[in-house]
Design a protein around this nucleic acid. Sequence first.
DNA 1: GACATATATTTCGATGATCGAAATAGTAAG
DNA 2: CTTACTATTTCGATCATCGAAATATATGTC
Lengths: 170, 170
Amino acid sequence: MTSDTGGDDAPTDLDLTRLLQTLTVESDRYAERFGAVHGLHRTDVNALLVVMDAARRGEPMSPGALARELGLSPSATTALIDRLETLGHVERSRPAGDRRRVALNVPEAAVEANRHLFTPLAIAFAQSWAGFTAEERMVVARFLEVSTEAMKAAGSGREAPPHDGAQRRR
Amino acid sequence: MTSDTGGDDAPTDLDLTRLLQTLTVESDRYAERFGAVHGLHRTDVNALLVVMDAARRGEPMSPGALARELGLSPSATTALIDRLETLGHVERSRPAGDRRRVALNVPEAAVEANRHLFTPLAIAFAQSWAGFTAEERMVVARFLEVSTEAMKAAGSGREAPPHDGAQRRR
DNA sequence: GACATATATTTCGATGATCGAAATAGTAAG
DNA sequence: CTTACTATTTCGATCATCGAAATATATGTC
């Protein structure tokens, strides 16, 4: 079902764009439901993913870096970290070198618990991807990378805004 | 950066999961920045996409359906539609048959304007996907479909929530 | 060494998106 | 006509987010 172009035709740019939009909307929705269960919000889930990923690489994030990563204001980030810290998902510490900075660590106890949080989704993904060959996975990885890059570039940079006739008041 | 497993190895489930997470985080960030320019919020952008997609298929959404689609409460959806209607992106109308219902239409004038809103990103995507063959696109489309399904299923279903310590009520 | 400037984070007050519960309107059944 | 049900909106409250100012630390200049 969801038969768009028939089935055996190659998806157009528009087809892929729609599929990607559907995926991101569904992702937001999942984050929302997921967060409701664990007392987190969409932003908190995103932040936790970013912090965990950085911590896993041994490069703990700072609040400022997290703010830039998420596109949040510094003050919102402080509140966000307060929430995560209260729930025990992350931890603040002042590095010895620059004491202006704050490092966001994931407490040992939380590392595994946090991973468990995302395990159900990871399992669901793994199952749904069981049929993909090595070559196909490389294609997909490439696609995800360039698409992420495209969004990053389209948002921050300049993207030749088309003549927009109808301008909304605001 | 892009610390993958080397280059020519096939991405593992974990690799793909991370790439997908990065993409969705970036997508949220894009929606946020994008919305800030046009006086919209993340949710409004998602809602507009959903409503536009439904309208394009000739099946205008109702507030209730939109609420379920986005995982919002009915009251939040009312406010959301108020915002979109004030900005002229959508329009309320009561269908002749059941006058309890409300149909969300996209005004003719807004159809093209709304499409223009998303054109920059569509262009960026199209450029980044220029190198994908027909076969590769079909692989990607399949991947996006099954991944979306996986999220939908993982969220609604019950996935044996692990013992979690801290919890907050809303 | 003292002083101005820059960087990192937090605090404070205000705005508004969202929620739950109750209200309103319309439909269907007995 | 009355009751039950569905769809949407209104109302009051909560809390995530913002911008601006405050705090603390670092760096450069005389």
